[in-house]
Design a protein around this nucleic acid. Structure first.
Length: 154
DNA sequence: GCCAACGTTGGC
DNA sequence: GCCAACGTTGGC
């Protein structure tokens, strides 16, 4: 079982939206970065756990835990001409982009802020991708020790 | 709104 | 294959 950190802008899709979704489950779609695409397509498995991270907002940080309930499959938004993430180069036979489905497992009573994570940058959270300069991936793998430590902050 | 740090595109 | 121009991400 792998662990992940998945970023989303709450003004677009936040943890509240996931909490309100049927069965607290939603597709994680719209990813248009090849490195992240490869993770979604090849590495995600049902049963994996992921932190939900709010980005580009007043209080960036981790707000809850999700379980992956469906491994990678073609991202339908790429085929939808009306969708903002539509990709004219994607076809049903050559989908190009992938998504997974996630279910909200736990909503934290507070945000584990980026500042709080950064306070352990040179200690328990050394090497955490989301703290590294220039990291622009919307999904990153999390080492089990980092996962445990971050979980213990709540 | 600014800007650093990327990734992508396309001409050559 | 190189690389300049452009677009995007995301914290501040």
């Amino acid at each position: 079982m792998k662990h992940w950190l998945m970023k989303s802008e709450p003004s677009v899709f936040g943890i509240e939206d996931l909490a309100k979704a049927p069965k607290r489950t939603s597709g994680w779609d719209g990813v248009r970065n090849y490195q992240v695409r490869n993770m979604l397509r090849d590495e995600f498995a049902a049963g994996d756990l992921a932190f939900f991270y709010h980005s580009s907002c007043p209080e960036p940080g981790i707000v809850g835990v999700m379980e992956v309930v469906r491994a990678g499959y073609p991202d339908g938004t790429a085929l939808d001409p009306k969708h903002p993430a539509h990709d004219p180069a994607a076809t049903r036979d050559a989908p190009r982009w992938y998504q997974v489905d996630v279910r909200l497992e736990r909503r934290f009573p507070r945000t584990i802020t980026l500042d709080e994570l950064r306070a352990h940058e040179r200690g328990a959270l050394r090497g955490l991708r989301v703290l590294q300069r220039g990291n622009r991936l919307s999904i990153t793998p999390i080492e089990p020790a980092h996962w445990r430590f971050i979980s213990s902050l709540i």
